[in-house]
């Protein structure tokens, strides 16, 4: 038994028949081959699978693909525009916000949701927003700095907003 779903992922529309039990993260990874979204714990604890569903940070290992029917999804692969990195992606590089890189996509997606709703988050607000994302290399300090870097860049008066950032 399979169910037809229509999903827009990173701006591209996909129509697929999926098993009702298929988790959204496996739909993205195995069906759409978007392997930037990772499975770290399969219990919605670690946040490595975080994506944006209709703009909201969501752990895709705890959502069924069929629940994403008619949703707009952004994954880490959709964050850069025409080769130009999102300020968060730039910030993680500038501030040494990653080591092994496995948690990074989830961190960036959670932070993107935060920055959409809070242009100038305090350190405490950033830490609170990222409480559902684990970094086992324990690089939290620089992750916070990376988010601050992106916030500063995005709120700079002359910052040129890409279409993608505006749409998130």
């Amino acid at each position: 038994m399979s169910t037809k779903i229509t999903v827009t992922v990173n701006g591209a529309k996909h129509i697929d028949k999926v098993e009702p039990r298929l988790l959204l993260v496996y739909y993205l990874r195995d069906v759409l081959k978007l392997t930037g979204t990772h499975v770290g714990c399969d219990t919605s604890s670690c946040g490595a699978c975080t994506i944006l569903v209709d703009g909201k940070a969501t752990k895709s290992c705890t959502m069924l693909a069929v629940q994403a029917d008619k949703c707009k999804i952004t994954t880490i692969e959709g964050m850069a525009t025409n080769g130009e990195l999102h300020p968060l992606q730039e910030g993680f590089n500038q501030c040494h916000g990653l080591q092994c890189g496995f948690c990074t996509p989830g961190m960036i997606m959670t932070a993107a949701d935060l920055l959409k709703n809070n242009k100038k988050p305090s350190e405490e607000q950033i830490r609170a927003a990222l409480e559902g994302n684990f970094c086992r290399c324990t690089g939290y300090h620089n992750i916070v700095k990376a988010v601050q870097y992106a916030a500063d860049k995005m709120s700079a008066p002359r910052a040129r907003k890409t279409k993608k950032e505006a749409a998130l």
């Binding site: 994954t75 692969e77 964050m79 990195l85 590089n93 996509p105």
Partner: peptide, 9 residues
């Protein structure tokens, strides 16, 4: 970093 921050690791 580029491959990890863009989901291409």
């Amino acid at each position: 970093d580029k491959r990890f921050t863009t989901g291409h690791g």
